[in-house]
Structures are given as C-alpha cells and as structure tokens.
Design a protein around this nucleic acid. Structure first.
Lengths: 164, 164
DNA sequence: ACAAAAAACTAACAGTTGTTAGTTTTGGTC
DNA sequence: GACCAAAACTAACAACTGTTAGTTTTTTGT
C-alpha cells in the first residue's frame, strides 16, 4: 500500500479516502477482467460465426485484452489465489465457465471438421497457457498488434487445423 | 518461514541450523532446476537426433522435469523475480541461454524442412508457455505420463509440422 | 559412559504490513 | 467570504516478517 501511495504522491493512509481495502483493489481489478472476458465470450457464442472463426475471435479477444489492460491482466495467472471469500469462489466460477465455453468451441470445431481430432483438454490447456502469458511477452517485443494476432492464430491453430 | 517450520514440526528458529536464509532456499531450488534443464539441453544438442526429434526430446524433458520436480518447478514462472543479486543475474543468464538454444532447435527444424516456416519467436513463446505451466495443470488431471507426452507433442508440434 | 557435535528450544529484535483515529488542508457552492 | 464536503495529513496500532542470541536437549563416536 505504501508503494501504491508513493506512486500516487500521497501518504498511504490517504488511499483509504478512495478505497475500502487492499483486497478490494485486487477484487475490483480481477472482476473487471473476468467480466470483460465473460461478456466477450457471450458475444462470440451468440454470433453466427463458424466454430473455427469463433476460435479465431477468441484469440483476437485475448490479444485485445492483453494490449488494452496489460497491468490488470498480469494478475490473472497467479494473483487471483490471494482473493478472499466470497470473491475467490466468484472468480473461480467465472473462470471455470469461461474455460468450459472455450472447450465447447474447440469441440464444435472438431465436429464441424475444421480442426483435427486432438485431445480437447490438452489443446485447451495449451492454448490458454499461451494466451494468459501473452502479457509478459508482448511488451518485450516491438510487435504490432495486428501482426501478433495473425502469427498467434497461425501458431495456435495451424497445429490444430486438419491437414486432410 | 514459520509455515515451513510447522510443516517440519519444529520452531522457525531451528530451521537456521540447516539453512543460511530464506533466500538461500529459493536460490537452491531454482538453481537445481535451471542446471538440470541446462544439462538436458546440452545432451540433446550433442546428440545425433534430427532437429524435429530434438524438439520432441525437449518436450519429453519438460514433462519428466514437471512430474519429477513439481514443487520446485512451480517457482520457475513467477517466483524467480524474488531472487537477489548475484543469483538473479545468474538465473536469468541460464534461462536466456536455454531459450536461445531452444530457438536454435526450432530454426534448425525449419531449415531441415520438418516444420513449417512459422514466426520463430512466437512459436518459442507459445511452446514454452505451455511447457512452463504444465505443473499447474497436470496434477488436476489423472493423465498418465506417457500419454501426456504423446498428446503434448501432438498438440505443440502437429501445428508446426508442415502439411506439405 | 562420556565428551563433542548437532539440532532443537525460548525469547526477543528490528523492520514491514494493512489499517484506523483524529486533525488539517483543499476546492467548490451559496 | 463563509460553509461544507472531499481528501489530504500525522501518528499510531497490532500483527506479522526473517533472523539472532543464548540455552537446553538429542544424537553420535570413542
């Protein structure tokens, strides 16, 4: 809290005119991110895109979120564990729902024949690992957003796309 | 330190009959992992395997390390940042060398024509993201090691393997 | 059985943590 | 210019952190 205060050029105690607690900051940041991903997933689900196009849209969404909310998104891989109840349960539920929906899109893509019959759980884990860690990597690179989206879709999907 | 002591059924102060400091524990764990990966990379590099086979051997090595040293390996993605100098520099150097060697294998695989002409940096980042986060995922699954290796190689490489 | 070494213990330290209470300053409205 | 709320301040709290000093207990080798 004293680090945050110094960055805002005030005393630590003054922060409490604006926030309830340190916990509430973590919660606000994580919930904002979780809600944005949830809304984005709903929009993609209710679209008329093919499953493969939905997969591409999901990758694009992760890139946009990473570029637009880099700092908050850096909390997602590890820091969510420090949430306290009931916020922890709430966050884990949102994340589980998102993963289930993501998995359903991969399954639909297999069924429509646009990607190979891979192990869905391994594919989901592998894809999300890359997308969740993007924030730590893309800042070091001088890569343009559109190129990043293109190369990421190529790397993540080309492997999945059936070579039949 | 008091948590560690409780797990070892002793007082926190008693730990210092066995270790120098909390820092030294982090350093010992991370250096052991870093050295094992470095040695493994050297063995693979000096083998007579093709570049593609070397890539497969690297994936197998990550799986073996993840299963064999799950706890210590969980420190690698995020906790290394808390190392103090000179250990921090030492660790970062070992990691950079490993990444460079990994990248060289991907490049060699492209040159020998066994994988597609992908963006090497994106492919390296994507592959290492998955392999580094494996520890957090595989314990939740009841998956057998050999199956995990097979499916992981399929997911990570099939995407790379040229469909010509 | 005894001396020496190893490893446990109690007690306490100095520094850091998130936070509260009470007070003073700032900035906008009548 | 007075008034009031918002937001800064100072001072301090209780809990927790890694670690040390000094002491007692346990283990080991002769």
């Amino acid at each position: 809290m004293r680090d945050i205060a110094r960055a805002m050029e005030m005393e630590a105690a003054s922060l409490y005119n604006h926030i309830d607690s340190k916990q509430s900051i973590l919660n606000a940041l994580l919930m904002d991110i979780a809600n944005r991903f949830t809304v984005g997933m709903q929009q993609i689900q209710s679209s008329s895109l093919t499953a493969l196009e939905q997969l591409e849209a999901l990758i694009d969404q992760h890139v946009d979120m990473t570029v637009g909310y880099t700092d908050a998104i850096s909390l997602v891989p590890s820091e969510w564990i420090h949430l306290e109840e009931p916020h922890l349960k709430e966050f884990v539920t949102l994340r589980k729902n998102y993963e289930d929906a993501f998995k359903a899109v991969i399954l639909a893509a297999i069924e429509e024949g646009s990607i190979a019959e891979v192990d869905v759980d391994v594919a989901l884990f592998s894809t999300l690992s890359t997308l969740r860690w993007l924030y730590s990597w893309y800042t070091k690179q001088g890569i343009k957003v559109e190129l990043l989206k293109k190369e990421l879709k190529r790397t993540l999907l080309q492997g999945l796309i059936s070579s039949l």
